[in-house]
Design a protein around this nucleic acid. Structure first.
Length: 234
DNA sequence: GCGACAG
DNA sequence: ATCTTGTCGC
């Protein structure tokens, strides 16, 4: 099944595909140290099928931006809780294929295995590309957890069906926690360690934060003009 | 049956 | 996710 064909799937078929992909998930320590990390995100105008995807690559752990790629695509697959990947992965894949060199680790805006079928967008993207991925969501989808104390970098395990699937991390005081979970080819401890290393004064880690800023820029830039995929830097 | 529900 | 100004709290 190719991501380009997701739009033809019914919700029931999408769920069946998730059960299929689940068999390939690999939660394990990283094979090699991280030297480059990237963040990916999507932006779009409500009620419109055009989606703006972007990926920003950084050196690690310095976190200096060393590249990016964007793609303006379309989706007809609606947002359905639990099936987010079928709506956003196709466009993200287009941006991913444009990257000069792939990062050692990709952070996606959403869940990894902290999903009812262990197939959050980060895990899904990792299995489709073979990349090492991690999910960093702004809110909980599945699982139970205790509220982390109101102190920076305090974490609390996130459990689903008696199994730990990630952690709730308070990245900043007085801010709601982030929900971190492995996507594929990485484990929970390393996923949390990397995200902590990417927090630079904001609630969101730099990879995802910068990707979010980038996709919003290209969306606004294309709001009035048709094809202007250039000059979206400064 | 009721409430929850990534972006 | 996006639409939007001011405003409460640290």
């Amino acid at each position: 099944m190719l991501p380009a064909d997701y739009e033809h799937l019914t919700p029931a078929q999408a769920i069946a595909y998730q059960h299929e992909l689940r068999k390939q998930i690999q939660i394990k320590p990283l094979d090699k140290p991280i030297q480059t990390i990237a963040g990916a995100d999507i932006s779009f105008n409500k009620h419109e099928e055009t989606v703006y995807a972007g990926i920003v690559v950084f050196s690690y752990p310095e976190l200096k931006i060393i590249g990016n790629a964007t793609a303006i695509s379309r989706t007809s697959f609606p947002y359905i809780s639990g099936l987010l990947a079928f709506r956003e992965v196709p466009a993200l894949l287009e941006a991913w294929n444009k990257l000069e060199s792939k990062p050692d680790l990709l952070v996606l805006d959403g869940q990894g295995i902290a999903h009812e079928r262990r197939l959050g967008i980060a895990t899904h993207f990792g299995l489709v590309t073979g990349a090492t991925t991690l999910g960093c969501a702004k809110s909980r989808l599945a699982g139970i957890f205790q509220e982390p104390a109101n102190e920076p970098m305090v974490e609390s395990p996130l459990y689903h069906k008696g199994e730990q699937v990630g952690v709730a991390l308070r990245s900043k005081r007085n801010c709601n926690p982030l929900f971190i979970s492995p996507g594929n080819n990485i484990d929970i401890p390393q996923s949390v360690e990397v995200i902590k290393q990417c927090i630079r004064g904001y609630r969101m880690p730099e990879p995802t934060r910068q990707a979010h800023l980038l996709v919003n820029k290209i969306r606004i830039a294309n709001g009035s003009a048709p094809n202007n995929q250039h000059d979206l830097f400064s």
